[in-house]
Nucleic acid binder design. Structure first.
Lengths: 229, 229
DNA sequence: GTAGTAATTTGAACGCTGTTCATGAGGCGT
DNA sequence: ACGCCTCATGAACAGCGTTCAAATTACTAC
């Protein structure tokens, strides 16, 4: 009734056994991430993975149903690590007693920028993905990871004393983070990376500064009325 | 000395000739745009284009060197049309005597959102593109079209009387537009399109409101000082 | 008209891709 | 020792972008 070689096969430490199924999956994902980083999505080839992992093409399809699933799994790892990086940055500032909202959000954005720069090939692949999923329409683990990022920003905004209820603060967090995201991606689709990093950071500083100032002055509630002042 | 059928071949109106080279190129681009809209970048196949255009595969490669070039040309057309749409929207407001900056920027963003919604398949393809061009590192026609969009926003910002020099106003325009872009794309990578449009618009309203309020209160100059007030 | 010539269209062919599946090898319980 | 079930294997298939020798067409010169 036990599926597979069920009973006495939990000894992995003994000798130099072949890799466990899960270990091999992680190895495949590590290789896939490296391939994506080097050459983008079009560099993720089944045969290359198989060769570098020391297995056959068919075995890759035994571990994952699709190359799409491999790509999605790599993206999940990236998003997960990005969230951890952001949380770590926030914890660092907390430890240093920094409570200023603008400062903390800039640090969060800086963590994001650094992360994107550290994954020049695979991050565009993360963004270009997503489109096709015939599975279910509902939110999945993918969205959960993105929401985790939003929640971190929302937590920072909560410290600032703007007159925001929970719903509106969440909206502001999504808005702010999507904007940072847009700045970073718009900046990196373009030219060389030389002067680009500086431009991106100037834009982020401007955005965050204006955003915080705007929230302080109640700009979040003004819809289309300029003469309210 | 005349290349090809050089001399007497400028009569196109006579009879029902086959399509001119340029006409055929435009037909191919129209087909390509439709294919991209229906199935994204991976739906742009040389054989499909050839079949729908009534020519052979080889002829497609006579008109364009690559499928990449076809894709890039389609993107150019889209960006060009988007710019024209934005300019038209601004002209409409001008004709109505609307000078309010916030109002005009919201109209600009609305034009952008409508345009993206009108091209659900090809717009992600525009964004996911760009990466590979072994040509030259310098800015090309692609960037020129993007800059034209930034210039429109900068023109709107010029009407508002914030204390911004040209350089800083251009930065603000790029920042604002990249943010709108980020909101739109972040919104459309996710779930269904049902409630999504509403969320996107709420975010844009919040962003623009906060941005204008922030500019009015000099948030563009504050770097990390909260107690300036 | 006819021959010659250059341009251009063509589609078969090449190499590559993701994916499948009959085959075979290998560990397990009995 | 035997059967059994599981999993790894890589040849095979369909489809892709791209090329290029050959065929077709369009035009000039006579």
């Amino acid at each position: 009734m036990n599926p597979g070689r069920g009973a006495g096969s939990e000894d992995k430490d003994r000798k130099s056994m072949a890799l466990d199924k899960e270990e091999m999956s992680e190895k495949v994902l590590a290789i896939a991430e490296a391939l994506l980083n080097e050459g983008g999505a079009e560099n993720l080839k089944a045969r290359t993975i198989a060769e570098q992992a020391g297995i056959s093409v068919g075995s890759v399809y035994n571990l994952f149903t699709d190359l799409d699933e491999v790509h999605r799994a790599v993206n999940m790892r990236l998003l997960d690590r990005l969230g951890a990086t952001g949380l770590a940055a926030m914890a660092d500032l907390e430890r240093q007693g920094v409570t200023d909202v603008q400062h903390r959000i800039l640090a969060m954005a800086a963590a994001y920028v650094r992360f994107v720069e550290a994954h020049p090939g695979s991050w565009p692949a993360v963004l270009a993905f997503n489109r096709r999923r015939a599975t279910r329409p509902g939110p999945d683990a993918y969205d959960a990871l993105l929401d985790a990022l939003f929640d971190i920003v929302a937590g920072v905004l909560k410290a600032g004393d703007f007159g925001l209820d929970d719903k509106r603060r969440a909206l502001a967090a999504r808005t702010l983070w999507s904007s940072v995201h847009g700045i970073v991606t718009s900046g990196y689709v373009a030219n060389s990376n030389n002067r680009q990093a500086e431009e991106i950071w100037h834009q982020i500083e401007l955005l965050v500064g204006v955003f915080v100032k705007g929230l302080e002055h109640g700009g979040a509630f003004a819809h289309a009325e300029t003469k309210s002042e």
